[in-house]
């Protein structure tokens, strides 16, 4: 029997067939981000809309241009560039010069994604690398936050420090005092009426999207729960305020939408739990001891490096495999 007569096709997993496609998932995740998108416009006005539209347009434009230049089929309709643009836009302050989102998009799409081989081959989350790049390049513009204006038309930007920044520089007491009580602080953080990056301030809007993704099965609970759980645990153990650390900053956005990226996160369940816990630990380490007030971005990027290693080290048991007994006297 010659080689090509074999009819048994052996291919790599996954073998499960479904109607889901990359395209569909990307658009669904983008849809899940819509509540936070709406919240950002509600709180930061027209400026938020402009920044985010520019970011999305730049990401899609660079995706098309890069694919054209390297001679690959242009796949801007698959939604992945739109999603990267949305996530990158969520990570920017509202009153930012527009060349910053454009540069961030170039780094995210062309360098982080396409120079590594395109969708599915990038090691790091493109939106986060884009954000890290512009944060390091323009630290001042990237950390000049705007107070929520709650008005579509208003262009008057009042700059204000983020709650995490106040907590780090002046202490929790000052922060609680500024918001007029702990419950007021919590509710402002929960609904998003605080200064910060566009898409991260409203925990409620992100939770809505996150729950949608969980219910529809686009993400599993492992990474978000272990990520958020670890943050709460570390906050409690170190004598901080767990509720504050859960609601403040980009934790919710990172845990539900960025750490759960299929490409840059691990894929076995056990590895996902470790990945989430690692993200949580690093986030708290940076928040409590680091030079930056917020650590979600760097935490996820650092754990991205470990994703392949975690997957290798924690392979799920092959179905039907016999576990070899370890020899007692090694």
């Amino acid at each position: 029997m010659s080689e090509d007569q074999h009819k048994l096709i052996v291919s790599v997993s996954p073998h499960v067939r479904s109607d889901e496609s990359v395209q569909r998932i990307m658009w669904m995740v983008s849809l899940a981000l819509m509540p936070a998108f709406a919240a950002s416009i509600y709180y930061f006005g027209i400026q938020a809309l402009i920044v985010q539209l520019v970011t999305i347009a730049a990401c899609v434009g660079f995706e098309a241009a890069t694919q054209k230049i390297v001679g690959k089929p242009v796949t801007i309709t698959d939604g992945s560039a739109v999603l990267t643009g949305l996530l990158l836009g969520f990570n920017l302050p509202a009153n930012i010069p527009l060349y910053i989102p454009v540069t961030g998009s170039l780094v995210a799409i062309t360098i982080t994604k396409h120079l590594f081989g395109g969708l599915g081959y990038n090691i790091f989350n493109p939106a986060l690398i884009g954000r890290a790049f512009v944060l390091i390049s323009w630290p001042k513009a990237m950390t000049t936050w705007m107070e929520p204006v709650k008005s579509i038309a208003s262009m008057d930007a009042v700059s204000a420090a983020t709650p995490l920044n106040i907590a780090k520089m002046e202490g929790m007491g000052k922060l609680v005092e500024q918001f007029g009580g702990t419950s007021a602080l919590y509710s402002n953080l929960f609904f998003g009426s605080v200064s910060g990056s566009l898409g991260e301030t409203s925990a409620l809007a992100i939770l809505l999207g996150g729950i949608f993704l969980l219910v529809r099965g686009y993400i599993t609970w492992h990474i978000p729960v272990s990520f958020i759980g670890t943050v709460a645990l570390v906050a409690a153990v170190t004598g901080g305020d767990p509720v504050f650390h859960l609601l403040a900053g980009g934790l919710m956005l990172g845990a539900f939408f960025m750490a759960t990226d299929y490409v840059t996160g691990p894929s076995t369940r056990k590895a996902q739990l470790v990945f989430g816990a690692g993200c949580g630990l690093l986030t708290m380490l940076i928040r409590l001891k680091g030079g930056y007030p917020e650590g979600v971005m760097f935490a996820i990027l650092i754990m991205n490096c470990f994703a392949p290693l975690l997957d290798r080290g924690m392979r799920s048991k092959t179905f039907g495999a016999v576990v070899k007994k370890k020899e007692a006297a090694a």
Partner: peptide, 21 residues
């Protein structure tokens, strides 16, 4: 405002890698 990251070591890796490519 210039891209500060490019004169940091990180930017060196970016520059060498991109030029090599």
């Amino acid at each position: 405002k210039p891209l500060l990251i490019m004169i940091m070591p990180t930017g060196g890796f970016f520059a060498v890698g991109i030029l090599m490519a």
